[in-house]
Design a protein around this nucleic acid. Structure first.
Length: 652
RNA sequence: GCUGCUGUGGCUCAGUCGGUAGAGCGUCACAUUGGUAAUGUGGAGGUCACGGGUCCGAUUCCCGUCAGCAGCUCCA
């Protein structure tokens, strides 16, 4: 008997065998869908004995699709283990996800001990080598089947399937699950898995529905891959800005100050100031922006005009809300838009003045739900380089391109351009009340942004329900160390706000005309960008961003004067430099400076003083040898000026 | 906002089956003045997150609050 595999290779067998046996042998337990080979154009059943040459489309568990199947099967095994240990646990759903799988149960919260016990029980099930059998039932029987097994969530799932649906189940002996498949054919092929964590999840993501316990786990084809993955999770923890940023002394929080209100230390502040000075100069001198400075709060009247009062009330901090003494109801600003509009309207503008680009380093306040705050990435007060560009409709395409270019330039300079993806954030046609404007407005503005990105050769995804209430956005997204995505930069097209505020410009015919508005950031907010930088560089920032760029390490206190001379030379050149004057051994000082992730250490002793040099030790190249003071100053100032991103050999 | 877990010197953690606490690192002082990842000795430093309850007595048990974490939901 000859079998032709998908890759063209041919296997020969002395006697007829079942597809099941062949599949098991070739793929270490492949997915059922893959096992269904084609014989003379017909899908063969697993136990069909092959008596002719055929082509078998085999997906092994080493393929991405097969790995997903492996994980999905592992979720069934986990569900069985849970029900063996906790017979009253009701099963909900258990899909494979990126990097693993989960299963939701209705049950009391699981402790770590429970998870370990479940893992042990899974081991037994794997060892038992249980075969997974697929069977199908008509809808009514399927419902009865799950009703008999007292699985209300499964019953609900089946009820939502179409009347004529073929409803399939997978039976692994003591555990049967509603499932479209495919699956591994045998539990024994699940060799490497780990229960990661458990947490609460709502049935169908609806907070009004049942509270379930979700167990997150992962599975791989072999122990090495699993170990590698677990190591990766550990490494991610080491880069986590919320941990590393605090350890490095860049920021802190205080219970009495409140959630989502980080405090920046001198070090963290220095980094933010370096970013801010750079961005402000860049925008004003090279990209044609003017700078404004507007209030952090306003009367509620302003937000009523802007639409925030109707569309964003929950997200604002409102002051004097229930005041009975006649005090004005105010709100801290959640955005800068309307404030800058009034600056625009201060003087009548001609088409010749447009595009009018107003930028502001703007502090904003957003009343996020208490469970939403995280480190520096979700906070209640943050500062952003926010601009509003007032322009004629004819200028929009070119200006939007400039905005994308500026954002790209900023990310490239920071070395972060490889981390991002672009997203067209659209309104939600299913939830029109959340947005201003009609279908035509949204379709046309969304198409406008789509065209701009296409013309600029940007690949992007599209997402419903992510737009601002006044218009669609180009969002530049980045993932954190745990794979969670955040918006870093946003560029929004707004063709409706000008009407609300009565903004206009005088066109070439001398008539009032309605401008368009671009809302955009050039860099995400400083807090979030700093978080991103910490995680991207694992704290080893490019020299220009380091709060401490050089540390001078005198061999002993005898060389304090020479160290001071070197320090002054660097300080006068604008370098952030310190001297470690403690009476510690040089090895100890080097160790500490290394752990502080300093880019440069300058060791100075008798030899150096005599020759007027410094011994350079860098994070990038280790011992760089002796250099004259002038030479090192020239080298580092050039590195800082060009914002070079030097990397060590092992960081390439 | 919801569910769960967590909160002990600056950091990492131990401990108290209820009798007001300990280590390492860091910090400070002194000695040492050194050559590329840890010199030695000594000292200081904690209302055990905060508030209430039970108890003769609470850091320990219970309740609440605040904060941190994970997840859900949300994110103009």
């Amino acid at each position: 008997m000859k079998i032709t595999l998908k890759d063209g290779s041919v296997k020969e067998y002395a006697e007829a065998k079942s597809v099941y046996d062949i599949a098991l042998e070739i793929s270490e337990g492949l997915a059922r869908v893959a096992a269904a080979g084609e014989v003379n154009g017909e899908i063969v059943d697993l136990r069909t004995v092959l008596d002719k040459d055929c082509t078998l489309n085999i997906v092994t568990i080493h393929d991405p699709a097969g790995l997903k199947v492996l994980r999905h099967t592992a979720s069934h095994v986990m569900a069985e283990a849970v029900q063996r240990l906790f017979p009253d646990a009701k099963v909900a759903i258990g899909p494979a996800i990126e990097d693993g799988f989960y299963y939701d149960f209705e049950h009391a919260p699981f402790s770590r001990e429970d998870l370990d016990n479940i893992e042990k029980e899974m081991k037994k099930i794997v060892k038992e080598g249980k075969r997974l059998e697929r069977f199908e039932l008509p809808r009514a029987e399927a419902i009865k089947f799950m009703e008999d097994r007292k699985e209300p969530f499964k019953v609900e799932l089946i009820q939502d399937l179409p009347e004529d649906a073929v409803i399939s189940f997978y039976d692994q002996g003591d555990f049967v699950d509603l499932c479209a498949g495919p699956h591994l054919m045998n539990t024994k092929n699940i060799k490497a898995y780990k229960l990661i964590s458990s947490s609460m999840a709502y049935w169908r993501g609806d907070s009004n529905k049942a509270r379930l316990q979700r167990i997150y786990a992962t599975a791989f084809t072999n122990k090495e891959d699993l170990e590698k993955h677990l190591q990766k999770l550990e490494d991610a923890k080491m880069r986590d800005h919320n941990k590393l940023g605090r350890e490095m002394g860049l920021f802190l929080t205080a219970d009495v100050i409140g959630q989502g209100l980080p405090l920046f230390t001198p070090k963290g502040t220095k980094m933010i100031m370096k970013l801010q000075r750079w961005i402000e100069d860049l925008e004003d001198r090279e990209w044609g922006y003017v700078r404004t400075r507007t209030p952090l709060m306003a009367k509620s009247d302003l937000y009523k005009i802007s639409g925030h009062w109707d569309h964003y009330m929950d997200g604002m901090f409102v002051l004097n809300k229930d005041a009975e003494d006649g005090k004005e109801v105010m709100a801290l600003r959640p955005m800068t838009c309307p404030f800058q509009y009034y600056v625009y309207m201060n003087e009548q503008k001609s088409y010749r003045d447009l595009p009018y680009r107003m930028s502001e380093t703007s502090t904003l306040f957003r009343n996020e739900d208490s469970g939403e705050m995280h480190g520096l990435t979700r906070v209640r007060q943050f500062t952003i380089t926010e601009a509003h560009i007032i322009l004629t409709p004819e200028q929009a395409e070119e200006e939007l391109t400039r905005c994308v270019d500026l954002a790209h330039h900023v990310m490239k300079t920071l070395g972060l351009e490889g981390d991002v993806s672009y997203r067209l954030s659209k309104w939600d046609p299913e939830n029109k009340a959340k947005y201003e404007g009609d279908e035509e407005y949204w379709n046309s503005t969304q198409q406008y942004l789509r065209d701009v990105m296409n013309k600029n050769g940007i690949s992007f995804t599209e997402e419903d329900g992510e737009a601002a209430f006044y218009g669609p956005k180009i969002d530049i997204q980045a993932k954190n160390v745990y794979g969670k995505e955040d918006t870093m930069v946003t560029i929004q097209l707004d063709c409706s706000s000008a009407t609300k505020f009565g903004m206009y410009y005088i066109d070439e015919q001398g008539n009032k005309a309605l401008p368009w508005i671009i809302h955009r950031t050039s860099m995400g907010c400083y807090e979030r960008t700093l978080a991103w930088l910490i995680e991207h560089y694992a704290g080893k920032f490019p020299t220009w961003l380091c709060p401490e760029q050089v540390r001078i390490l005198p061999i002993s206190e005898k060389f304090a004067d020479y160290a001071e001379k070197v320090r002054k030379a660097l300080y006068d050149a604008g370098v952030d430099v310190t001297v470690d004057t403690r009476s510690e051994k040089i090895g100890y000082k080097i160790r500490e400076a290394t752990m502080d992730k300093l880019p440069y250490m300058l060791i100075v002793g008798a030899e150096e003083e005599e020759k007027g040099v410094v011994s350079v030790r860098s994070r990038f190249a280790g011992d760089e040898g002796a250099k004259s003071i002038e030479e090192f100053v020239a080298q580092i100032t050039e590195e800082i000026r060009t914002k070079a991103i030097r990397k060590a050999a092992d960081e390439q």
